[in-house]
Amino acid sequence: MSELTDPTKGYLSTRMLTVQLKRFDPEKDKEPHWQEFKVEARPIDRVLDVLMKVKWDQDDTIGLRKSCGHGICGSDAMRINGQNNLACKMIVQNLKSDKITVEPILGLPVIKDLIVDMKPFFDHYKSIMPFLVNNDPAPTTERLQTPEQRERFDDGTKCILCACCTTACPPFWGNREYVGPAAIVNAHRFIFDSRDQAAGERLEILNDAEGVWRCRTVFNCTSACPRGIKVTQLISEVKRALITGVVDVPQPDEVLA
């Protein structure tokens, strides 16, 4: 039995955490400020549970987004101990210290406490044509695609648009017109899909001063991605496609020809 599922360890034992929370209420505050809360937490608790405990038991004015609670909806991206993550994907047991700092992700306007305005982020996403383009008449059944062709763009399909990557990116902090890693990952997902016909248009969009060349290969995006997407690598593949003019999608083998 792992320690987390051992009731005496994972569920019954508790530890006192100090949560430093960055607060901002536009109706009361001129500037953001830190507020400290003490809260009892179990090793099995998610940081999201810890925050909800504070909100529900101590101060229900705290603003944060949440939904699925297990890392698939992308609502609760925040900066925890200086690193972007989803609050629901961090477990108390894995926290090194009893003190945690929680603040909103950087680079997007703060609306209230941990809630930022996601519109600029989604606008960048929408700008790269994030949808399949195929103007051939659709067959009566599925379009064929080999497992290798499907695998080619798999990594990007894992994206949940949480913004952890883009808001961890120093070039994005410096220039909010930059489309950012998440938008490039989603462009990659279609550029390298054998069924898509608009790779050229997407590459043209990204071959721009605010496009893929803003990337300085800092790798913050890759370490921040809660989905384990190799973000920097995908960006590099887009750069390579622009430099070489070749989009290397596996060719269908003879079975499909």
Binding site: F131, L132, N134, A138, T141, E142, R143, L144, Q145, T146, P147, Q149, R150, F153, D154, T157, F190, D193, R195, D196, P252, V255, L256
Partner: peptide
Amino acid sequence: HMGLPFDRTPDGR
């Protein structure tokens, strides 16, 4: 047809 990335059989279905 909308682009959903289903997993594929060896013959592409």
